[in-house]
Design a protein around this nucleic acid. Structure first.
Lengths: 136, 136
DNA sequence: GTAGATGCAAAGTATTTGCGACAAG
DNA sequence: CTTGTCGCAAATACTTTGCATCTAC
């Protein structure tokens, strides 16, 4: 199991305010990849006084602290998800918008090899697959 | 050699206005991946009366017609490049912003395999590697 | 007690759009 | 001719920010 977001905040020296706790909690409970609007709506149900500016400030802070990951899928707004130790990439259903997480070690290794081939150390990457469901 | 952008417009039934010809020409001559501002600046040198709205409209049209590819690299504005038959992905130098194009058949095949594993037909993908130059 | 966080509304960016004038086929 | 495009400025969508107030530590 990974540390809770609150635990991670402590570790990173991020001040734990009431608002941040709520946002952390909501993100932890989300199994999808909410955008800021969706997150703001969910958060508002817990505390209607939280402003969207705080949501924006908090996701940015959490992202910089390595607590959340930001994704910018094709033609869509920025989406966020909790970052746990297991890295994964995304397969997006272009019809339904459904997002499937996957891991492929072989691809990861090849990426590193490509970067090295050009004299680079790979520090980050983005891999998104866009597909349509096959009629089996 | 690939068809010129103008030729592609004909093939796709895209009306060839003076402005579109200029934008096509400028994109063809660009070996980098300009964003809309940069493109607008270059285009303005040829015809200073072209508006940025037309540039936005044209890159969108060209993208939808499969003439240009749009890229949204991390924390940067949208960038465009001419789309030729040879597909490639990008390795971005996070210090300098330099963009290197690469092709890796093996990764391409693995992507297709991943999509299939989940019951999808791969219709598009995005692979971006972010790296720092190694001090050899 | 103090540095940093919040809410609000205003300001920024990047991009799109309504509309009357104009040009391509 | 007629349909679609252009330039312009206004509108939109998303995100950031200045400031006075408040809160975690």
């Amino acid at each position: 199991m990974t540390d809770s977001i609150e635990k991670k905040c402590e570790l990173k020296g991020v001040k734990l305010t009431e608002q941040r706790k709520i946002i952390a909690q909501v993100m932890s409970e989300s199994n999808d990849h909410p955008n800021v609007d969706e997150l703001y709506n969910r958060v508002s149900k817990v505390d209607s006084k939280i402003s969207i500016a705080t949501v924006y400030r908090t996701v940015k802070l959490f992202e910089e602290s390595g607590i959340l990951a930001k994704h910018e899928f094709k033609g869509d707004k920025a989406r966020y998800e909790e970052l746990n130790e297991g890295h994964h990439d995304h397969l997006i259903d272009i019809k339904s918008g459904e997002i499937i997480e996957f891991v492929d070690e072989e691809i990861e290794n090849l990426q590193k090899k490509v970067a090295e081939k050009y004299g680079y150390e790979l520090v980050d990457h983005k891999l998104e697959l866009y597909g349509v469901k096959k009629k089996s």
